[in-house]
Design a protein around this nucleic acid. Structure first.
Length: 497
RNA sequence: GAGCCCGUAGCUCAGCCGGUAGAGCAACUGACUUUUAAUCAGUAGGUCUCGGGUUCGAAUCCCGACGGGCUCACCA
């Protein structure tokens, strides 16, 4: 970026001008403030470990080259705190060791600059591991000052808008996003080791199916058609199962939903979706437990986690309770004994659910569950016995035609996983879609559209299978004790400024 | 989309029953050469988010806009 590119925001930023002046001084000395590379011998974390036993006051003859960002300078630059991704080390710039030319460079350094240092390792009498610099190389001259060193960047908005600054200042932010990376890696490895094949399916859909949600619309110019950003990969993944690409497959990727933002909702979010032939939803319960506990053990090292001060025990197996049973426990009403939609609506209303009056039996049960039960499911539980009406892609419960073989796993009152014995009967599937279309025509914006090609795929034969979706962002929130989903997404959606 | 709260120096924050803006860090000048949020002396830095209004006078009171946070609704 040149100086003239931001005249509107920073006509004359004196702090920036001073740094630009220093950059010019470096250039005048024949020094490139933005060089191409720096050969380093160690990361600072390696040095911390290697010299953990070095006594205070001890010196070595070990010459090392480290690189990182200046986070603090004391005694007019004689002491520099240098941070890299693995940790930090102190750099000592003394006139007796550093040549006068490099000493001149040190005078042109600022907090925030990236530098490389060569020197001998020692531990100061006060116990600080230090590189006695004999050479200092500018690796990137910073033109903007870092936030105040003690409090860091406290402005929540700025932390999300300028995540690069937040990450420089906040080890908590670094840990959170690194844990996110680790959670995904652990799940991916866990599945790969067990023969699950990772695939990619389209983000751009002509029909936004596979879930009940409002999609983003975009436009393809050459085809001159509107396309939807996918709300779920489900229907494409099952097409791959029909094709026999693999009998166990998954995708970890983004979904997009054009709905409200909140501390638990970002318009784009990451989910794991997985399908496995020849098993039913019970296998998905076990797999959910295995994946979540593997992730927790990898990033926390224990199954006893704390979220916002609440202790959660992830020890398996997790209880399995039906939706109707849970509602009965809390509110004393047995929805399975209610004969009609009207009776179910009355019952749901009587226990505090807000209804429009158009709900069918299943929607009324779901509303009652959402109103009275969800928030109480703090410890992990698989909620089973979902109504057929709200589950158009799940196979009927083999014992009760009003229900389907579906469960959602709840932790801390949040839906963490959603899984079914997948509906494989094309005729049944078509009927479910038709029912959804009717609901859509009646004003239900989120009822799922009919996907003819998906039904056609089923007519070629989808093996009996279990399907599972796990919301990665919320799981990472739980495993990082993050109060907002924006904390676990590097660049959350914000209104442009 | 609705309600409540927030927006003051690059950053973190004071000031807010109206009288024209302050500290710490960062920066600059100097001192100091084994410091640890280094210290000491001095200097500079502000369209108090923006636009209206009330008033002799507005960072402060009122209205609106913009951005953000939380809660609710929708949803995962």
């Amino acid at each position: 970026m040149t100086d003239s590119e931001q005249p509107l925001r920073d006509p004359v930023d004196p702090l920036r001008s001073v740094r630009i002046g220093k950059r010019e001084s470096l250039k005048a000395r024949g020094i490139d403030p933005y060089p191409y590379s720096f050969e380093r011998t160690h990361e600072t974390g390696q040095l911390e470990r290697r010299y953990a036993g070095l006594a205070a006051g001890a010196e070595t003859e070990d010459k090392v080259r480290v690189a990182g960002r200046i986070r603090a300078m004391r005694n007019s630059g004689m002491f520099i705190d240098l941070h890299d991704a693995s940790g930090k080390i102190q750099v000592f710039c003394h006139k007796d060791v550093l040549g006068s030319e490099d000493l001149g460079i040190v005078r042109l350094l600022d907090i925030g600059d990236l530098i490389g240092v060569e020197g001998l390792v020692r531990r100061t009498p006060r116990g600080e591991l230090t590189v006695n610099a004999c050479q200092v190389t500018v690796l990137a001259k910073a033109l903007r000052p870092l936030p105040e060193k003690y409090h860091g960047l406290a402005d929540i908005e700025l932390r999300y808008r300028q995540r690069y600054v937040d990450l420089i200042m906040s080890s908590q932010s670094r840990v959170t996003l690194l844990r996110r990376s680790r959670v995904i890696a652990v799940m991916r490895n866990y599945l790969a080791e067990r023969g699950y094949v990772e695939v990619e399916t389209p983000m751009l859909h002509a029909i936004a199916g596979g879930a009940s949600a409002k999609p983003f619309v975009t436009h393809h110019n050459t085809l001159d058609i509107d396309l939807y950003l996918r709300i779920a990969p489900e229907l494409h993944l099952k097409r791959l199962l029909v094709g026999g690409l693999a009998e166990k497959l998954f995708e970890i990727n983004r979904c997009f939903r054009n709905e409200g933002l909140s501390p638990r909702h970002n318009p784009e979010f990451t989910s794991l979706e997985l399908y496995e032939a020849y098993v039913d939803y019970r296998a998905m319960m076990q797999l959910t437990e295995e994946l979540v506990t593997a992730a927790a053990e990898a990033v926390i090292g224990t199954l006893r986690i704390s979220y916002g001060g609440t202790e959660i025990d992830l020890s398996v197996p997790w209880p399995r309770r039906s939706m109707a049973e849970l509602v009965h426990d809390v509110a004393g009403i047995d929805f399975l004994a209610l004969p009609s939609a009207e009776a179910a609506r009355e019952a749901a209303t009587s226990i505090g659910a807000a209804l429009t009056g158009a709900e069918n039996w299943g929607q009324a049960l779901e509303a009652a569950f959402a109103a009275r039960v969800e928030d109480t499911l703090i410890q992990p539980v698989h909620v089973t016995g979902f109504p057929r009406e709200i589950s158009p892609l799940a196979k009927a419960d083999r014992h009760d035609p009003r229900l389907v073989e579906r469960f959602e796993t709840y932790i801390y009152g949040w839906e963490i996983a959603n899984a079914f014995s997948e509906l494989t009967d094309p005729e049944d599937q078509r009927e479910r879609f038709v029912a959804q279309m009717k609901a859509r025509a009646a004003g239900d914006e989120e009822a799922q559209p009919l996907d003819e090609d998906y039904v056609t795929a089923l007519e070629y034969g989808l093996p009996p299978c279990g399907g599972l979706g796990i919301g990665i962002d919320r799981l990472v929130m739980l495993l990082t004790d993050s109060p907002s989903i924006r904390d676990v997404i590097a660049f959350p959606t914000l209104r442009p400024r």
